[in-house]
Amino acid sequence: MIDFIQNTIDGVMIGSSYGLLALGFTVIFGVMRRLNLSYGPTVMIGAYFGTVLYLDFGAGLLAVAAAVVAGAVISGVYVERLCFAPMKAGAGIASMVSSFAIWMQLEQAAVLVLPRHTYPFPPLATGPALEIGPLLVRPDHLIMLGGALLLAAVVQLALYHTRFGLGLRAVIANPIAANLVGVDVGRLVMLAFAAASAIGGVAGFLVLAVDQQVTPMFGMWATLKGLIAMMIGGLGSIPGALLGGLLLGVVEVHSHWLFGPQVRDLFAYFVLFAFLVARPGGLLGRTADVELSHRV
C-alpha cells in the first residue's frame, strides 16, 4: 500500500513535467489547429542556450532559466514564420511536414554547438528528500509541481481575463470573425507561438534542472511526452493538459513498478492508443476538428 502511494506521488511529480510541456503544446494547438513537431526541439534549443551560458560563463540558475526561455521563444518564432505563417488554410499537413524538417535542422544545430552526447545542467535544488511519514518527496520535484500548477493558473487567467486572451480566443473560434472585429490575426498568432514557446522554455528548464543533464534527444522526448499528455487531457483545455500530464506520469511509474523499466514506455503507449480510440476527446476536451485535410 505504501508502495502504491509512493508510486502515485512519484508519478504525479514526474507527470507535472509532462503537464508543463503539454501546456505550451495546448496553446499552439488551440490557436493553429495544426501539429507542430518542432515544439520539443525549440525547447531543446532554449536548453542549449542555457547550457552554453552555464558551461562557458558559469551563469547562475536564474540567468540560465532566462536563457532557456529566450532561446525557446526565438526558435519558436523561427518555426512559426517558416512552417505556419506562410501555409494557407488547408495546408495543415504541409505545416506538419515542414515542422518535421525543422526538427531535424534544430537537432543538428544543437549537436554542432555542443557535440557531446550529454552535458550537465545546473540543479534546481539539492538536499535530501523530504520525509512525510513513510513517504519520500524530492524538493526539486515539489518545485516542478508547484511551477506546473502556477503556470497553468497563469495561462488560464491570461486566456480568460486579458485583452490578449480575448483576442486569442476570438482567433481560435473563427479567424475571419476575429479579423472583422479588429484583431490582427497574424500578429496575434505569432505572439501566441512566442508565449507557448516561453511556457515550453519554463517547462524545459524545470525538467532539465531536475534531470541535471541535457542531450540532443531531449527535443523528441519533449514533443512526444507533451503531445501525449495533451491528447490524454483533451485538446484545447488548459486544466486538461495538466491533468493529462499527471495521469501519464502516474501510469508510467506504476507500470515501471509492475513490469520493469523496459516495458514501461510500451505500456504507456498502449494505454494512450486505447485511450484515444475509446475516448477521442480526451479527459476534458471535445473531439478535435483538426485541419489536416490535404485535398488532392
Binding site: 480575448l166 480566443r169 476570438a170 473560434a173 473563427n174 475571419i176 470573425a177 472583422l180
Partner: peptide
Amino acid sequence: VPENRLVFPEM
C-alpha cells in the same frame, strides 16, 4: 456584420 453572423460561440 458578416453573413451567417459569425459570433464567437464559446464566449
